[in-house]
Design a binder for these strands. Structure first.
Lengths: 204, 204
DNA sequence: GAATTAATCAATCACTTGATTGATGAACTT
DNA sequence: AAGTTCATCAATCAAGTGATTGATTAATTC
């Protein structure tokens, strides 16, 4: 139960509210349209109060990046991959992506924006790049596992396959993306990377 | 031969120079760091002169988008795909991407920025989305062709495969991308989508 | 060669924007 | 109850920031 008559919020709560408002505004206006005043207004606080909780705009963007990173980590931990074979793990990964797209599409959009930002802002790069590298590593391990357990192609290059998988997911944050489209794309991905012992050799 | 003693440039030349300077600055500072004054300074003209040639910042960004679009169109027309089979056309497409990445990496970076922008700016969307749709259509046709001529998997979903291909290319504008890495990724893509009649069926 | 158009710039406007200051009341400490 | 810290805001600052104005000079037209 919350007491909504409370006049003062803790810094943790405020920072979370500020991050949430900033994320919404980044989706609406992009990083180039992000204004500290707009964020303060959306949270319902004064601009000086915002600066009390988050010292600078730079720190604010880093806060947003960190909030994204934390959510991805939480999602990764939510489901155990233990005891699963390669293709099953890949399936779970895709389901996570599908869930993200449906429950927090704004998260994907903000992440795309921050990945761009990371290219020229070391502070953001320090947050986003390890996150991407970690995901890439997990995926590569899955592909390797799949090649070993016979559920994925034996001649797979785990690193390259992880790259293609990430590109596929990142591409779904595009225009006409709906659930059915994503499912069709992943089905094609599965046909492309799953082991296919059923193919009938042609006679030359 | 050019006469570099010329004091006045034509509007076409000026607009091209402005677009080029803007693209460089977008790479350096992002759209959120783009300033009309900086562009003018880089071209070597007064801010008022810039506004004489390009009426507003909005129009300037549209000019950049159009310049990108024109270059992509030119690249697409540079090599004829006639008489090629599915996998050969795909190879050419990859070579074009590789060439872009090496000869004009800034073009890819700016395009990524503009694709983000298109999400919330109808004027930019009107330029970028048809470009993307056109590329997607060309790719889907290639995959269909490849399925028909036996060079690519017969069970391919051309639309989904095009999506994955675009994601792969877009993903290469990421961090540690070098030529060897791109080639390894495309090799994996080829293994994944090429017809593989040589697979030996396993006995259940 | 006079009139017109194209291209340019110094100066400035009106407004935005991130950040600070100094003050105020609530909540916690002792 | 007094002192201290926490959270808040009205007012303001200084540096931008996109755009305009009015004038000047080179090029073109007639």
């Amino acid at each position: 139960m919350e007491q909504d008559s409370q006049k003062r919020e803790s810094t943790d709560d405020r920072r979370a509210a500020i991050a949430a408002a900033a994320r919404d505004l980044i989706v609406e206006k992009g990083l180039e349209g992000l204004r500290t005043r707009d964020i303060a207004a959306r949270v319902g606080i004064n601009i000086a109060t915002l600066h009390y909780h988050v010292p600078s705009k730079e720190a604010l963007i880093a806060l947003v990046a960190q909030s994204i990173k934390d959510e991805f980590r939480a999602q990764g931990l939510a489901r155990s991959r233990q005891g699963k074979n390669g293709i099953e793990m890949l399936h779970m990964e895709f389901e996570d992506a599908l869930e993200s797209q449906e429950e927090a599409p704004e998260r994907i959009a903000v992440m795309a924006e921050l990945v761009e930002r990371a290219r020229r802002d070391p502070a953001i790069a320090a947050i986003m790049l390890p996150m991407r590298a970690h995901w890439h590593g997990l995926l590569a391990a899955m592909f390797q596992q799949g090649a070993a357990d016979g559920t994925l192609r034996a001649d797979i290059d785990p690193d390259a396959a992880a790259h293609i998988f990430i590109g596929m997911i990142a591409g779904t944050r595009s225009i006409k993306t709906n659930r059915d489209h994503m499912i069709a794309v992943f089905a094609e991905f599965e046909r492309a990377f799953a082991a296919r012992p059923h193919t009938v050799p042609e006679v030359n």
